[in-house]
Simulated scan of single mutants.
Amino acid sequence: MYDIIVGVDTDVERARTQGAAIADLPGSEEINAILVHVFGGEGGDIESVDAVDEARSILEGAGVEITTEGIGGEPAIALLDAAARHDADCVCVAGRKRSPAGKAIFGSVTQDVIMGADRPTLVCSTDE
């Protein structure tokens, strides 16, 4: 089994892109996708996140095994901690287009995950 941590935010289109990218991987029926949504506080109900439902639907349709995890904290750190806790083979995040100034001022979860990961990282991008 190939374990992938999938960092899903609230954007349904990005979740759709992540789900499709993972579903298109060779041997998708041998993948366990751990859908992780990071809540700003101490946690929340992951079942109420529409983007998680979208990713789950696409992945289940491709025969991918799904588990979900809603956690609190700072997104990049929480995703990297989840990857370590599950000894994941890969981390999947969805990037969005930002100007260099926007990245410098607001930061980027995707960039922080890429820079902090000690395992392969799959970055999916929409046409935003």
Rank of each mutant, 00 (worst) to 15 (best):
Ile22Arg: 07
Thr110Gln: 02
Ala82Trp: 11
Ile31Leu: 14
Ile58Met: 12
Gly102Arg: 10
Gly7Cys: 13
Gly27Phe: 07
Glu42Met: 12
Ile4Gln: 09
Lys97Gln: 12
Ala23Cys: 07
Val93Lys: 13
Val64Glu: 06
Asp24Lys: 09
Asp24Arg: 14
Glu69Tyr: 13
Glu69Arg: 15
Arg98Gln: 11
Gln18Asp: 03
Gln18Val: 00
His37Glu: 08
Asp3Cys: 15
Gly70Cys: 09
Thr17Phe: 14
Ile77Thr: 06
Gly63Cys: 11
Gly116Lys: 01
Ala55Glu: 03
Gly72Val: 03
Lys103Asp: 05
Gly44Asp: 10
Asp118Thr: 02
Glu69Ala: 15
Asp24Cys: 09
Cys124Phe: 07
Phe106Pro: 01
Leu59Thr: 00
Glu54Cys: 03
Glu13His: 14
Gly107Tyr: 07
Ile77Leu: 10
Arg14Phe: 06
Glu13Trp: 15
Phe39Ser: 02
Ala84Gly: 03
Arg56Ser: 05
Arg96Phe: 08
Leu80Arg: 03
Val38Cys: 07
Val123His: 04
Arg56Trp: 06
Arg85Cys: 11
Thr67Gln: 14
Leu25Thr: 02
Asp118Met: 11
Glu13Ile: 10
Leu80Glu: 07
Glu54His: 07
Glu47Ile: 06
Arg85Pro: 03
Leu80Lys: 02
Leu25Gly: 00
Arg16Val: 02
Ala51Tyr: 05
Gly7Ile: 09
Ala101Thr: 07
Met1Ala: 05
Gly61Ala: 06
Pro120Gln: 15
Ala62Ile: 08
Gly70Val: 04
Glu60His: 06
Gly72Ala: 06
Thr17Ile: 15
Ala104Ile: 05
Asp81Trp: 00
